[in-house]
């Protein structure tokens, strides 16, 4: 078999690499222990990089949102530069037994391969845990994100509205 029928084999976290700007970055599994580092990351987050209302802007709302995500029976990976969280990717279960994916990278660390590594490691972990279906929505004009998702194997499943829906089968 060839092509899209065969799920890609994704690496599992932890993953250490040097990013395109020569920075040492580690992508690793995260749970509620990463809360404070993630709160700091999202306080620093460029409001222009928000998508469809997330992450929230105000610290209280950021905490509430992260509490839900970090305890939602989902999967979270964080990209660390030293002890600083600079990227986060998450899978949140829905009622249909599938998972919604989202990814966030701090402005200064974008375009340096960190997003791709985050998504691959997250999918690798989920794949090894038996997750089969992952979907996401992305604003149609968000070309860098759409390119990233296509590169790792997501396919467009609905392009009718402002947000494009994409999915991958693991």
């Amino acid at each position: 078999m060839t092509g899209a029928d065969v799920p890609a084999d994704f690496p599992t976290p932890p993953r250490e690499f040097t990013d395109a700007e020569d920075r040492e970055v580690v992508v690793d599994r995260a749970d509620a222990d990463a809360l404070e580092a993630l709160v700091e990351m999202y306080i620093d987050f460029d409001p222009g990089d928000r998508a469809q209302g997330i992450p929230p802007v105000e610290e209280g709302q950021i905490r509430e949102w992260l509490d839900a995500i970090l305890s939602a029976e989902g999967f979270n990976v964080v990209a660390w530069h030293g002890d600083r969280a600079v990227g986060h990717a998450t899978l949140v279960p829905d009622d249909a037994g599938t998972y919604e994916l989202a990814i966030f990278v701090l402005d200064d660390f974008q375009g340096a391969r960190i997003g791709t590594e985050l998504v691959k490691a997250l999918l690798g972990w989920a794949q090894s845990a038996g997750v089969e279906d992952v979907w996401l929505t992305v604003e149609r004009w968000n070309d860098p994100a759409i390119r990233l998702y296509k590169k790792v194997g997501f396919e467009t499943t609905d392009a009718q509205s402002f947000e494009m829906e994409m999915a991958i089968r693991l």
Partner: peptide, 15 residues
């Protein structure tokens, strides 16, 4: 509505 992740999703009527 909001997705499980918290993303706002406009339905086709709103759009």
């Amino acid at each position: 509505e909001r997705s499980p992740m918290g993303k706002i999703q406009l339905d086709s009527v709103a759009e």
